[in-house]
Computed example of a mutant assay.
Amino acid sequence: MAADPAAAILRLLDIMARLRAPDGCPWDREQDFSTIAPYTVEEAYEVADAIAKGPDFSILQDELGDLLFQVVYHAQMAREAGRFDFAEVAGSISNKMIRRHPHVFGEAEMRSAEAQTAAWEVQKAAERQARAETGTLAGIPPGLPALTRALKLTRRAARVGFDWPDAAAVLDKLEEEAGELRAELPAADKARQADEVGDLLFVLANLARKLDLDPEACLAAANAKFERRFGAVERLLAAEGKAPQDAGLDGMEAAWVAAKRAERGG
């Protein structure tokens, strides 16, 4: 571990400035906020993936470094534009954390986790108001993954009472939306079908919220399960000297059932 975190940060800031210098890296010099933003999102996902796969902390350390570099990159570009620098970024988040934790850094009473969550949301609402972001749904970034944004939108709406009473009611709505999609199938109108599929996904995000689940995590787990089982299907077919396309749907379905049975241990 580095003996001096401040020195390590200063070294990284110097490296970033050097990369963006007139005689630095041509690629780094050409970038701007919009071109770097996708890499920032990608690095955040890679951190999450390293945590999910765990417990290899060397990989997590490396991915966190990549994510930190993204923050430093944006801060350097802002510094060049005369807007802010890394110190101001660090100072801003430090001030925000102190402001949002008066029970730790102030004289407010220690709260339960539930009470603290409520107080946190009140503070965030005040901050949005100070930024002239009005409305219940203000401040939810449009660049979030769609399922995550659906979760946040409906969670925010639920705070003012716009919500289904329970998960069973959401399931009823899901069946209603499925019926509406089914009615659109014969017409083959892609725009209307897309609208109905969107409604289905939105209701599913609500269902996850009512069950206190993260829809992105649920879908990620389903993706991983499909990937794992389809890989098993390919291996089972390969043992028979077949490729998936040669086995046909019936052959693949039989291998899928076998893969599921093997995975469940029976």
Rank of each mutant, 00 (worst) to 15 (best):
R11S: 12
C25S: 15
L19A: 07
E114Y: 04
R11M: 08
R20Y: 13
A3E: 11
A115E: 15
L68P: 01
G265W: 07
T35S: 15
D189L: 01
D62H: 13
T35R: 11
A87K: 08
D49Y: 09
V47M: 01
A232Y: 06
A150G: 10
W256F: 11
Q70D: 05
D189H: 10
R149G: 03
A50T: 03
D189K: 04
S58M: 08
R149V: 01
Q245S: 13
A119V: 03
G91S: 02
F226M: 11
R11A: 12
A3D: 13
T154C: 05
L213C: 05
A205Y: 00
T117W: 10
A8E: 12
E196T: 03
W27G: 01
F230H: 12
R18G: 13
L200I: 06
M252I: 04
K53G: 06
I140A: 01
A262P: 02
E234D: 11
N95G: 14
G251F: 04
V160E: 08
P142C: 00
M77S: 08
D56S: 10
S92M: 14
A167K: 04
R20N: 15
E133G: 02
G65H: 09
H74Q: 14
E216L: 11
A113V: 08
R228S: 11
I36V: 13
P22L: 09
D56C: 08
K53W: 04
Q76S: 09
P145R: 03
S58K: 10
V197P: 00
L213I: 05
F86K: 00
A78D: 09
P141C: 03
P186H: 03
E133Q: 06
A238W: 00
G248I: 03
A48G: 02
A17F: 05
A75T: 13
